[in-house]
Amino acid sequence: MRVKVINLDRTSIASLITLSLIFLLITGAAVADVVTPEVPMGRGAQCVEPIEIMRRDHFEFIKHQRDQTVYHGIRGSKHSLAGCIDCHASKGTEGEFLPINAEGQFCQTCHTYAAVKIDCFTCHATVPD
């Protein structure tokens, strides 16, 4: 079986590269311009995983942990939702904990920015015990 190869002449390749570079420049500049949310971290500075990984995969961790807890009774391990709240809940002016899903707080700030609804706090506690 022959694979069909698209043949491009030099001019086309050159223009494609130029276009890609322009695109990268524009988007790069745009990224620099975007206002990223300022997330109150609570007392948590050092997370259980590197920040880049947590940003991308926190839900996978929490979801995995949730089934471990519900079905196998494994509690208090490092990827628990209670752990997130323990570390990242901020305190208000009178020293009381603010709900982590309140507007401007740790979970909600990012989720508002990303426009993703959180379903955890219909059931789960929003402040540390």
Binding site: A82, I85, T122, C123, H124, A125, T126, P128, D129
Partner: peptide
């Protein structure tokens, strides 16, 4: 709708 659940006993509407 519920608020103020216990950490060890999650429970919610529906």
């Amino acid at each position: 709708d519920l608020t103020g659940q216990k950490t060890h006993s999650p429970r919610g509407k529906g």
